[in-house]
């Protein structure tokens, strides 16, 4: 049996909000360590890897491994009905045909209970070896989100160029072009405002702006985003959860 209680529904609300536009159907794998998901978008360009460790829950137990096949849009409809500050408990039997979601407000005078039908989802599972990266950028997630939104107004592609101590986001469109340069920066008082660049080799990669604008829906989850890049390889965008992560692997664009 699975029983996982979040102190606040807001964490799962944000996670589902970040995923629902990229993937429609997901298997949520529940083990004693927590809940994990791997899902690929229909175009097979973006892969989502979610890990909500048991430590992200106030109470968590899962005696036997359970797979919950969930339709993200339906899950989102139910999740939206709960208040962000409600306690949220996920409950499923050992061989479940439904996931129960219980929202309780903190004063315990209101309990809302929902049941979501499960689906049998046949999904490819991709093996992601330990990847080596040539460049790692830690930057404020809100800053990254603004750059992705701004650059998308110009072009469907966003070029990321990393040299020693700066990251250049470059966009070449039909009616004009634009770029934003971010430099390494340490804010000792507000560390979440800092930009850190760790570089082994210079990077010049191009990504689809549409996918980046899906990824930045994770912004409310974490004040910083970690971007890991390697020449001619998928990039990794990571948002840390209190205990766990939401990762996106994005395939680059190449010269034809």
């Amino acid at each position: 049996m699975l029983e996982g209680k979040f102190d606040e529904a807001s964490l799962l609300k944000k996670v589902i909000d970040a995923m629902k536009d990229s993937v429609k159907l997901c298997n949520f794998n529940c083990t004693e360590n927590g809940i994990s998901v791997q899902a690929i978008d229909d175009s097979r360009v973006l892969l989502i890897s979610l890990l909500i460790e048991a430590g992200s829950f106030e109470d968590y137990r899962c005696d036997r491994n359970i797979v919950l096949g969930l339709e993200m849009e339906s899950l989102n409809k139910i999740i939206k009905n709960g208040n962000a500050s409600d306690m949220l408990t996920l409950v499923a039997e050992d061989s479940p045909d439904a996931l129960n979601l219980i929202f309780e407000d903190k004063r315990r005078d209101r309990i809302a209970e929902y049941s979501l039908k499960l689906m049998d989802i046949d999904q490819d599972f991709l093996k992601i070896e330990d990847m080596k990266f040539d460049a790692v950028v830690n930057m404020p997630s809100a800053e990254f989100a603004k750059i992705c939104r701004d650059m998308k107004t110009l072009s469907e592609s966003l070029q990321i160029i990393i040299t020693k101590d700066s990251v250049k986001f470059n966009s070449e469109g039909d009616f004009g072009s634009g770029s934003v340069v971010i430099k390494s920066f340490t804010d000792l008082e507000k560390t979440e405002e800092s930009v850190r660049i760790t570089l082994e080799k210079p990077i010049n990669l191009t990504f689809g702006a549409k996918y980046l604008n899906d990824i930045i829906k994770s912004t409310p989850l974490a004040s910083q985003v970690t971007i890991k890049l390697c020449d001619k390889q998928p990039a990794l965008f990571e948002y840390q959860l209190p205990s766990g992560y939401l990762r996106f692997y994005l395939a680059p664009k190449f010269e034809d």
Binding site: V45, D124, L126, Y249, A251, F254
Partner: peptide
Amino acid sequence: KLKQASLMSFFSKS
């Protein structure tokens, strides 16, 4: 002209 790569050319099914 840029072409979008697929993740399937980088990762194998397990």
